[in-house]
Amino acid sequence: MIRVSKPWELSENQCTPEKLYLDRRQIIGSLGLSCGLVASGAIAKPPAPDLPLVAKTSKWSISDPATPEKLATSYNNFYEFGTDKSDPAKYAHALITRPWAITVEGEADKTGTFSVDDLIRPDELEERIYRLRCVEAWSMVIPWIGVPLRKILARFEPNSKARYVQFETRFEPEQMRGTRWPVLDWPYVEGLRMDEAMHDLTLMAVGMYGRHLPNQNGAPLRLIVPWKYGFKSIKSIVKIRFTANEPTNSWKKSAPREYGFYSNVNPKVDHPRWSQATERVIGGGSFSSLFNRRDTEMFNGYGEAVAQMYAGMNLKKNF
């Protein structure tokens, strides 16, 4: 496959989102609509998904060709918008992502409620090209843009009792039509052990393919934990809770025989519904690639970086 220029690779002279925001306000001002209400209304609007994001490159990026953006934004498991893979792209536009507050609770000194725009500092943005391995035995390669989660969590100053951190997705039946049926015990929750959360690979993503996240991919901010099955990478986060005990996670609650807390990608531990030995590669390009499967790697290929966190643990038992 020939790699032509990637749409998310931006040249130096492109604007930062802040500058565009300012421009927009200036335009509004110059039109003579400069009353405060209009201006603040403009700021509270979600950033248009096609606004370019500027991010540093990262040593963690893999060199596999990225999945076509169209496929990564139209084939989604985001049950809050429906259980069909095509539902999120159809219905997630109803989610209002600005203003967006994140509540921080539990075992930390600096708890409270924060705006997403205060938590994400543009100068900390990195692009990370990661493989995303779904528990349904398919995978994509996605160029995410985000901030290492450890940098964000550190600002809340978790105390010595904080051994785990739990995340919660927005639950808003008005805007998230899938939550009107109890597919899962809403709101969706996920959790990580503190060392997993503080690992440099763990990303709080706000963008993909050089732009802000589309709603169906978890706008305005979502987790990316590349060595775990995709469902750990919780979307549209509104709550972060530091806990002393292992928190629950939605899929484990729904089917404890099938889903555990750790959910590390592991080709040797089969899920009752799917063999995890291989994975279908989405969007290979050619017709024959539709049938392509690759061998699933231990920890989704990130073993060198993360395996030591699980030294001595029985990974069959702690699946």
């Binding site: 139209s74 893979k85 279908r280 050619s286 539709l290």
Partner: peptide, 15 residues
């Protein structure tokens, strides 16, 4: 799909 177009079957036509 054979002609290289993505149709209504989406990203994972086999599924």
């Amino acid at each position: 799909l054979f002609m290289g177009k993505t149709g209504a079957l989406g990203a994972n036509p086999i599924e």
